[in-house]
């Protein structure tokens, strides 16, 4: 955790009259795993969209790798170092294989070996030729993870990547991500409302409530010595919405 990869300052994003997301200050270090915790509708997905560099913002600034994004929009080269795994992935109406290959084709870097390796890695080999629109929700989520991972991004933005998966698959995904992170020093920003998972994977945790960041702390501090009372309530499962 050396230098700051992301630095967000005075970020404000409105939808209608309400502020949807307000971030006064936040940094993400290169190579760390930051979990975004918080209940549904707390702004996790919106924050991930901002971090993907594709979400225009009204005010504030987003600095990525030393460069400030104009109105929150990243350049194509920067976007290609960031991969987003959406919560509800929409796949192309092609085969599983073609879906995994898509990002590589965009970069003119098609490689059958990498696709094969990814199919094996996620246990999708048998489904390779199947049309993507015939998959189950869990299988789709795996394909969505695969099409992002195959690009070997610097930053991986994960939006509830295991929400639809059975326990074995969850373990598989966590293991795969862990390996990726270690071997490539990939930065993971991981939105989840699963506290056990957060505890297993996070270096640091940020709690979002109603579009505001309540607390950012290391995993240990977050769970064992929360500074904010709302964090304590959340961690202890006392928060009721």
């Amino acid at each position: 955790m050396t230098m700051a990869l992301y630095r967000l300052e005075g970020l404000r994003l409105a939808r209608g009259t309400e502020f949807e997301l307000t971030v006064d200050e936040m940094t993400v270090s290169s190579g760390e795993t930051l979990c975004l915790a918080g209940p549904t509708g707390s702004g996790k997905t919106t924050l991930l969209r901002v971090l993907s560099g594709l979400q225009p913002i009204e005010s504030g600034r987003v600095q990525f790798d030393g460069r400030i994004w104009c109105h929150g929009m990243a350049s194509l080269a920067e976007i290609r170092t960031i991969a987003l795994v959406p919560q509800r992935p929409i796949l192309l109406s092609r085969s599983v294989r073609a879906n995994l290959e898509y990002g590589l084709l965009l970069r003119r870097a098609a490689s059958d070996e990498r696709v094969d390796a990814m199919l094996t890695c996620l246990g999708l080999t048998k489904l390779a030729k199947q049309a993507a629109n015939t998959l189950s929700g869990g299988q789709m989520q795996l394909v969505a993870l695969g099409r992002a991972l195959i690009l070997a991004p610097r930053v991986l933005l994960l939006d509830e990547p295991t929400a639809n998966l059975d326990p074995q698959c969850v373990a598989l995904v966590e293991q795969v991500l862990n390996e990726y992170r270690r071997s490539r020093n990939t930065t993971l920003i991981w939105a989840t409302h699963n506290l056990f998972q957060t505890r297993r994977v996070a270096d640091r945790v940020a709690l979002l409530l109603g579009g505001q960041i309540v607390e950012v702390a290391s995993c240990e501090e977050f769970f064992d010595r929360p500074r904010d009372y709302r964090t304590a309530d959340f961690v202890n499962g006392r928060m009721v919405y």
């Binding site: 993907s52 594709l54 976007i79 290609r80 987003l84 929409i90 965009l106 099409r147």
Partner: peptide, 12 residues
């Protein structure tokens, strides 16, 4: 949403 996801995968 597909458009957004494709752009996030690096589509010009």
């Amino acid at each position: 949403e597909l458009l957004f996801q494709l752009r996030s995968l690096g589509a010009s």
